[in-house]
Nucleic acid binder design. Structure first.
Length: 770
DNA sequence: GTGTCGTCCTTTTTT
DNA sequence: AGGACGACAC
C-alpha cells in the first residue's frame, strides 16, 4: 500500500496522528495520499473507520475517495463520514433536526429555488427591486451566512446596508416558515448546532479523531470555523491543498485559511508534495515560472522525471474565428496522428468563447462535448416533478407550491393566488394551509389541487419510491403535458430518467421495496447508527446509514437531488473533444490541452485587473490551466474578437511574457503583435478567411484596418501598445481598442491608477510613445 | 393562459 | 450578438 509512494507521500501518509498541512502540487498524487492516509490509519489499528471524517467540496471528489478507499481496504465504507461539507452538514442536521430547530423533513433550496423565494419575499415586502435586485440581496445574504453572521451580527454602515440586513431577516423568516434551508444555511445551522449544543458537540468531538480535508485552499471562513470546532476535542486535522490552485475567491474561498492553519495548527508539520506525475518538463517549467510571479505563496516547486517533452506551442491569429479554425485544424492533425479526441481539451476563460469554437468544431464534423450548463436535477421538467414530490413531504414549501399549483395549467390564475397569498400572510401560515379560506371559484380549483397532493401523499404510504415518482408524473399531468408539447420528447425522456434515478437510488441506499413516504422504525438495519447525543459509546461495525436515519426514502431522495445536481455532461463513452472553462477543468488532465483566448483583458480578465489580488487569482487560474496538460500544450490568442456585439482588439496576455521563451515555440510571428494586412494574407496559415471559408481569389483584409493602423480620432491615431498620458490617471499603455470614430474606446492600463476604459473622443490623451 | 415584443446583461461556479 | 426574462396585449 505505501511501498509505491515517494518519500514525501509516504511521510504524509504515515505521519503519527497530529495536525498536518500537506501542500500538494498539481498532479502530485493528492487524492492518493488522502485515501492512503485513511487506509493506513485504519489498517494499522490507529483509527476505526468511524472515527474518521473526510470532507471534500464536490460529490465527485467524495465518490472518488470512497471508491479508492474501498479498493485499498476490504471494509464497508457505507456509513463512514466521507462527503462534501454540505452533505455532511445535512447528515448532522437530519440526525439532530430537533436540536437544530428544523422540521424533520426540511427541504434544501438550490440556487434557483433560493432566487424565487427571495423574489417572493421582496415582492411581499413591497421592495423596490431596482434598488435591491434579488440577485444582489442574495449575494449579501449568502455572504453573511458564509461569514457565520445572522442578521443581528451583520454590521451595517449605511441606510442601504441596514435595509439589506432587514431583507436578510425577512428572507430567513420565510425560509423558517417554509421549512427550507439554502446551501449556506446547511453549513451555518450545523455550525451553530455544534457550537450551542454541548452534548451534541462533545459527542462528535469524541467520535471524530481524524479529520481529513481535501482542497483546503477552497474553504471559506465558516467551513474553517466548522473544522476547528469539530477538532477542538483533540482530533487531528490533516489538511491537503494547494494555495497555487485557489481559484474560487469570488465565491468566498479564502486562501488565507492555509497560512492561518499552518500558523495555528501545523507550524512544524508542513509536507510538500512536489513531484509531478502528470506533465512533461516544458509544461511544468512554464507553470512554475508563471506562478513564481505571485506574492505570498506558501512556496513549492514542482519537478518531474519524465523529461523535457515538447515545448509549449503558441499561435496568434488575427481574429477569434481564425483562432478557432486554427485550433480545429490542429485538433484534426492530432486526430489524424492517432490521438483520441477525448484526450484533447479546449479550455477558455469565459463561456462566451465557446460558441465560436463549437461552431468551428461542428463545421469540421469533429465530435465535441461541452461541459457546464444545466444539470439533470436542474432541468425545468425535473424540477417540476420534484416540486410535487416535495409537497408530498412538506406541504408548507411555498416555493414548490407556487411552482406547480398551476402547472400543468388547471385554471388557477394570478388573482386567486394573490388572494391566497394575502390570506396566508394574514394568518401567518403557508399557502397550502390557507387554501380552505379562499372563497369562490378559485377556492374550488385550489381545493382540487390540494386534494391532488393529498392523494399523492396517500400513495406515498403504499408505493415504493420509483412507483410513486411514476404515479406523480402521470397524475400531476406533467407527462401528458410534455407529450403534447412539440419538442417535448427530450423532457419526457428526462422525466422517465427521473423514475430511473429513483430506482437506482432506492437500490443503492437499501430502500428497495419500502413505501416511499414511510420512515423506518429506528431499530431496522437501515435506520441504525447514531446513538442519541450524549451517549458515550459510538457503535462501530454495525450498519451505519446515519445519512438517512429517520428519513423516508422520498425525503432521502429529495435531499440527494438537491445536494447532487447530477452530472453536467451528457452521454459519456463517445470519443469527443472536451470543451470547458478553465475553472471546470480543475482536477482533470488530458494528453493535449488548448488554452484559448490568451489575451490581456480576457485572460487575465479585465475585471480582475483592478486589484492585485484579482490578477494573482487569474495567474493561479492560468497555472491550473497549464498543469492540466500531460504531453502537449497550446496557447492560442486572437488579435480581435467579437464581444458584446462589438469587435475588440487586444494584445497578448501578460502571462505569456511571464513564461521563459525557451519553453515556448511560436508558430506565428513572435514580434509585431498586430499583423499587417500583408501578414494576414500571407500569414502562417492563410487557409480560411474571417468566416472560416477557404480563401478565394481576392482576399479581403480579415481584420479591419483599425487593427493594423490603429483608431483615428480627430488628428490622433491610437494603437495597441502605445504609451499615453492622462491628466488625472498619469501614464499608461493602451491594452485594447474598440469601436471607431466618435465612439472609439480604449482600455488603458495605467501605471498607478489601474486599468480604465476611456472614450477616446472625450478623454484628452497625450501620446507619449509607440 | 399564451404568445410576442422589448429590455437587460454578459467572469469564473459548487453545494 | 444573442439569450433570458418580464411586461403587455390578445
Amino acid at each position: 500500500m505505501i511501498e509505491q509512494l515517494n518519500a514525501q507521500q509516504r511521510s504524509a501518509v504515515t505521519l503519527s496522528p497530529q495536525h498536518a498541512l500537506v501542500l500538494a502540487g498539481a498532479g502530485s498524487g493528492k487524492t492518493r495520499v488522502l485515501t492512503t492516509r485513511m487506509a493506513w490509519l485504519i489498517q494499522t489499528g490507529q483509527a476505526s473507520p468511524f472515527s474518521l471524517l473526510a470532507v471534500t467540496f464536490t460529490n465527485k471528489a467524495a465518490r472518488e475517495m470512497l471508491a479508492r478507499l474501498s479498493a485499498q481496504l476490504p471494509i464497508n465504507t457505507r456509513g463512514m463520514w466521507i462527503g462534501t461539507f454540505h452533505g455532511l452538514c445535512n447528515r448532522l442536521l437530519r440526525a439532530h433536526y430537533r436540536d437544530a430547530n428544523l422540521p424533520q423533513s426540511f427541504q434544501i433550496l438550490d440556487t434557483g429555488d433560493q432566487l424565487s423565494l427571495m423574489k417572493r419575499v421582496l415582492k411581499g415586502g413591497g421592495v423596490d427591486d431596482e434598488k435591491f435586485p434579488p440577485k444582489e440581496v442574495l449575494r449579501f445574504v449568502n455572504g453573511a451566512k458564509e461569514r457565520g453572521e445572522r442578521p443581528d451580527a451583520v454590521e451595517a454602515w449605511d441606510a442601504h446596508e441596514r435595509h439589506l440586513v432587514e431583507l436578510y431577516r425577512l428572507y430567513q423568516a420565510q425560509c423558517e416558515r417554509d421549512g427550507v434551508v439554502d446551501f449556506a444555511e446547511l453549513l451555518l445551522r450545523a455550525f451553530e448546532l455544534l457550537q450551542r449544543n454541548g452534548p451534541v458537540r462533545e459527542h462528535y468531538q469524541r467520535r471524530f479523531r481524524h479529520i481529513l480535508v481535501d482542497e483546503f485552499q477552497d474553504t471559506n471562513a465558516l467551513q474553517y470555523r466548522w473544522l476547528k470546532l469539530l477538532a477542538a476535542g483533540g482530533a487531528s486535522i490533516f489538511a491537503v491543498g494547494d494555495d497555487d490552485q485557489s481559484i474560487y475567491a469570488f465565491r468566498g474561498a479564502d486562501v488565507g485559511n492555509m497560512a492561518e492553519f499552518q500558523r495555528e495548527y501545523a507550524r512544524d508539520t508542513v509536507i510538500r508534495l512536489e513531484q509531478n506525475y502528470r506533465s512533461q518538463g516544458h509544461i511544468l517549467d512554464s507553470a512554475n515560472a508563471l506562478i513564481a510571479h505571485n506574492s505570498a505563496r506558501l512556496g513549492k516547486n514542482l519537478w518531474t522525471d519524465q523529461g523535457e517533452g515538447e515545448p509549449v506551442r503558441v499561435s496568434e491569429q488575427p481574429s477569434d474565428l481564425l483562432e478557432a479554425q486554427w485550433v480545429v485544424d490542429e485538433i484534426r492533425a492530432l486526430g489524424d496522428g492517432g490521438g483520441a479526441y477525448r484526450e484533447i481539451a479546449v479550455l477558455y476563460r469565459s463561456n462566451a468563447q465557446s460558441r465560436v469554437l463549437e461552431h468551428a468544431l461542428f463545421s469540421a464534423r469533429i465530435p465535441y462535448k461541452v461541459y457546464g450548463g444545466l444539470r439533470f436535477f436542474e432541468r425545468q421538467e425535473v424540477k417540476h416533478a420534484l416540486a410535487y414530490l416535495r409537497l408530498i413531504e412538506n406541504p408548507d414549501d411555498d416555493t414548490s407550491w407556487l411552482r406547480v399549483v398551476n402547472f400543468p395549467t388547471r385554471g388557477i390564475g394570478a388573482r386567486t393566488l394573490e388572494q391566497l397569498s394575502d390570506l396566508a400572510g394574514q394568518r401567518g401560515c403557508s399557502l397550502s394551509r390557507a387554501v380552505p379560506y379562499v372563497a369562490g371559484k378559485g377556492g374550488g380549483s385550489l381545493a382540487r389541487f390540494a386534494a391532488l397532493i393529498a392523494e399523492m401523499r396517500g400513495e406515498a404510504q403504499i408505493l415504493p419510491l420509483p412507483e410513486l415518482v411514476d404515479h406523480v408524473l402521470v397524475h400531476s399531468g406533467l407527462l401528458a403535458y410534455y407529450r403534447n408539447e412539440r419538442d417535448g420528447s427530450d423532457r419526457v425522456e428526462n422525466l422517465r430518467e427521473l423514475v430511473n434515478a429513483a430506482q437506482v437510488f432506492v437500490a443503492d441506499e437499501n430502500f428497495e421495496g419500502l413505501p416511499a413516504g414511510r420512515v423506518l422504525a429506528s431499530d431496522s438495519p437501515v435506520a441504525a447508527g447514531e446513538p442519541p447525543p450524549g451517549v458515550a459509546a459510538v457503535p462501530e461495525g454495525a450498519a451505519n446509514d446515519l445519512g438517512w436515519r429517520g428519513l423516508s426514502p422520498l425525503a432521502a431522495f429529495l435531499s440527494y437531488a438537491a445536494l447532487e445536481a447530477g452530472e453536467n455532461q451528457a452521454r459519456l463513452g463517445q470519443d469527443a473533444v472536451q470543451m470547458m472553462t478553465v475553472h471546470a477543468a480543475k482536477g482533470l488532465e488530458f494528453d493535449s490541452v488548448f488554452i484559448t483566448g490568451v489575451e490581456d483583458g480576457l485572460f487575465p480578465h479585465e475585471n480582475s485587473l483592478l486589484e492585485p489580488a484579482g490578477l494573482e487569482e487569474e495567474r493561479r487560474l492560468m497555472y491550473v490551466a497549464i498543469t492540466r496538460a500531460r504531453r502537449r500544450l497550446y496557447l492560442t490568442l486572437a488579435q480581435s474578437r467579437m464581444l458584446h456585439g462589438q469587435t475588440r482588439y487586444a494584445i497578448r496576455s501578460r502571462f505569456l511574457d511571464e513564461i521563459p521563451p525557451e519553453h515556448l515555440k511560436w508558430l506565428t510571428p513572435r514580434e509585431g503583435r498586430v499583423l499587417s494586412d500583408v501578414d494576414v494574407t500571407l500569414g502562417a496559415r492563410p487557409r480560411r478567411d474571417a468566416y472560416g471559408r477557404p480563401p478565394t481569389g481576392a482576399i479581403a483584409p480579415m481584420v479591419p484596418r483599425t487593427s493594423a493602423n490603429g483608431v483615428l480620432v480627430g488628428d490622433q491615431r491610437f494603437r495597441i501598445g502605445q504609451g499615453v498620458r492622462h491628466r488625472k490617471f498619469g501614464e499608461g499603455t493602451i491594452i485594447a481598442l474598440s469601436g471607431n470614430g466618435s465612439d472609439a474606446q480604449a482600455r488603458i492600463q495605467f501605471r498607478s491608477a489601474g486599468a480604465k476604459t476611456l472614450a477616446l473622443g472625450v478623454a484628452k490623451l497625450e501620446i507619449i510613445a509607440g
